[in-house]
């Protein structure tokens, strides 16, 4: 290509690719407006309803922040839902025996332990993370069922429940605070730290990253650790919100989390993604769920409509990637 041709080819695509980058925000506003217009009379715009959307999606949003890092390295973590369930059980059991601090440590420890195993299997042994975490999904769920004897383990500690998802700070649900805090930290880490840069470089072109001195195996280990710890935090939030640890918590969340990240513009092939986009993706999914309920659709119809909307949104946001 001559330089002149290269120059003209280079000018053209920027405005188009720009609006695609903001598709998640555009989609969010459009769908919000449609629901506000059609469902306003059914209480969609009621502040309580809007806060409810946040309560229902904050946990997905927290995990989707970590998933942005995992997908950013072109890896995947399918075990997050099961790890959330296991961590809720571990937290409840720990609290029973060791008190509140012990419970929190048990919950986070679960995340660290699972993350270390996932990371080691993926980077040390070389099993693709898809398989590692698929297997881990079953193992974590199974362990949760086993140690809890499939029973719910109640959490009676009021302060724990208030901090981890159950309470409000004034009018603000604590879940919203968790979401904002995790989102803010995640955003800064991905955007402004050397770690974040290396995550995206690893996913963008692993060979080139390795040639550039990035220890790509260590980066992958760390992001898998990160997502397991975030999943464990999600489990602790479930436990606080519903005053118990149950192995069922988080079932199917892995798919919601991945859908949220991809809706938010994170590439499944690595190298691109934003934390804010993923959170918006989670909120959009919550928004759609809420609207469909208010429309009075049956659960079966909700599933179909939600699937269709997600396909359309992802199709639009992904067309730029060839």
């Amino acid at each position: 290509m001559t330089d002149a041709a290269a120059l003209s080819a280079r000018k053209a695509p920027s405005p188009l690719s720009n609006w695609r980058e903001f598709i998640i925000y555009i989609g969010f506003v459009v769908i919000f407006a449609i629901f506000a217009a059609t469902l306003g009379s059914r209480g969609f715009l009621d502040p309580n309803n809007l806060l409810n959307i946040v309560r229902q999606t904050a946990i997905i949003a927290v995990v989707s922040v970590a998933m942005t890092f995992v997908l950013g390295t072109a890896e995947i973590d399918l075990s997050v839902g099961a790890v959330a369930g296991l961590a809720s059980v571990a937290t409840a059991m720990g609290m029973d025996h060791l008190g509140i601090a012990g419970g929190i440590l048990c919950g986070l420890g679960t995340g660290v332990a699972v993350g270390a195993v996932n990371g080691w299997l993926t980077t040390g042994i070389g099993i693709p993370s898809f398989l590692t975490t698929l297997a881990m999904m079953g193992i974590a769920r199974g362990v949760a069922m086993w140690i809890s004897a499939t029973a719910a383990i109640p959490i009676l500690d009021k302060p724990y429940a208030a901090v981890f998802g159950g309470g409000n700070l004034g009018p603000v649900p604590s879940l919203l605070l968790w979401m904002v805090a995790v989102g803010a930290v995640g955003h800064v880490v991905l955007r402004r730290t050397t770690f974040g840069r290396r995550v995206l470089a690893t996913g963008g072109n692993e060979t080139s990253a390795r040639y550039s001195g990035v220890d790509t195996a260590a980066i992958k280990f760390k992001v898998l650790m990160l997502s397991s710890v975030a999943a464990a935090l999600a489990g602790m939030l479930y436990a606080g919100r519903l005053h118990s640890g149950r192995f069922q918590f988080g079932e199917g969340d892995e798919l919601s989390v991945i859908a949220a990240a991809v809706l938010g513009g994170t590439s499944l092939f690595g190298g691109a993604g934003t934390v804010v986009g993923s959170i918006m993706g989670a909120l959009l999914i919550g928004l759609i769920n809420n609207g469909l309920v208010l429309m009075g659709l049956e659960f079966s119809q909700q599933l179909i409509a939600r699937g269709a909307i997600i396909i359309v949104a992802v199709a639009i946001s992904q067309t730029r990637k060839r």
């Binding site: 470089a201 963008g204 072109n205 040639y211 190298g271």
Partner: peptide, 15 residues
Amino acid sequence: QGFVAFHSVESNVAL
């Protein structure tokens, strides 16, 4: 081996 194609000139130089 040389660069991340869809990342910016800036990111690539920084890596």
